[in-house]
Nucleic acid binder design. Structure first.
Length: 234
DNA sequence: GCGACAG
DNA sequence: ATCTTGTCGC
């Protein structure tokens, strides 16, 4: 697919925060009229002591849960991990991955927060706006917000709140297992986001999209970290 | 100053 | 995120 980057990525942490404050106005909260069918999962894997990083996207059919297409790349990290600025580290390589994808997905699920962010512009919002696709964030842990633990059954959820504002949902995708943190990205509603994540978690805690993308980036990382792969020691 | 802090 | 074996449970 064709992707245009609306700003520079070579910025300072302060510059990054300013970009977030400006781009947040481009986020739409209007969800599609019906459930998206082709869902892309996006993930990034790192190497501990090297600037190498691996990104991938896997497109899954929401109905059959079959993989439609997958794409992955290796890249150099150009921004450090800073809480609240994760998108400046992960979106650049993900843009390259989506340019490589020939299937146009209807939705993107990110491994991180969307609206549940200090400036309401987490990774899922940033990627969704740039790709101009509906998106949502499904994180394994919390960045900001307070919440009560949801009930113990799959499907139970509680609101994730920042003061009086509901910024996301803490959703149990598997009975008796730690919940995930859902928040809207671009063109998405919290209700639809939960519905989509539940449909993509028939047997595991994380969405099949995320799991498959995660599996792919780890294969890419090992492939270049192991054998004759070009890595840290020339 | 102290604690928190997606991946 | 990454470093890592076995182990308890469905």
């Amino acid at each position: 697919m064709i992707v245009r980057s609306p700003h520079s990525w070579n910025v300072t942490t302060q510059g990054a925060r300013e970009i977030q404050e400006k781009l947040r106005r481009r986020v739409s909260f209007k969800a599609p009229g019906s459930l998206p069918r082709l869902v892309a999962g996006a993930d990034v894997s790192y190497n501990k002591f090297s600037p190498n990083l691996y990104a991938a996207a896997v497109v899954v059919d929401l109905e059959s849960l079959e993989t439609i297409e997958e794409a992955g790349i290796a890249a150099k990290a150009s921004f450090p991990y800073v809480p609240g600025l994760l998108s400046f580290r992960e979106v650049p390589p993900l843009i390259r991955v989506f340019r490589k994808l020939r299937t146009l997905p209807h939705l993107v699920i990110c491994d991180g927060q969307g609206y549940a962010h200090p400036r309401r512009f987490g990774l899922a919002c940033h990627l969704g706006v740039i790709l101009d696709l509906p998106s949502l964030g499904c994180a394994k842990s919390r960045l900001i917000g307070d919440y009560e633990h949801p009930g113990n059954d799959r499907g139970d959820f509680t609101p994730l709140k920042d003061g009086e504002e509901v910024i996301g949902s803490v959703l149990r995708t598997r009975t008796g297992i730690n919940p995930v943190f859902i928040s809207v990205g671009h063109c998405m509603s919290l209700e639809m986001a939960r519905e989509l994540v539940l449909r993509l978690t028939p047997s595991c805690r994380l969405p099949e999209t995320t799991r498959r993308a995660h599996h792919l980036v780890n294969e890419l990382r090992r492939a270049s970290t192991t054998d004759a792969g070009k890595s840290s020691v020339p």
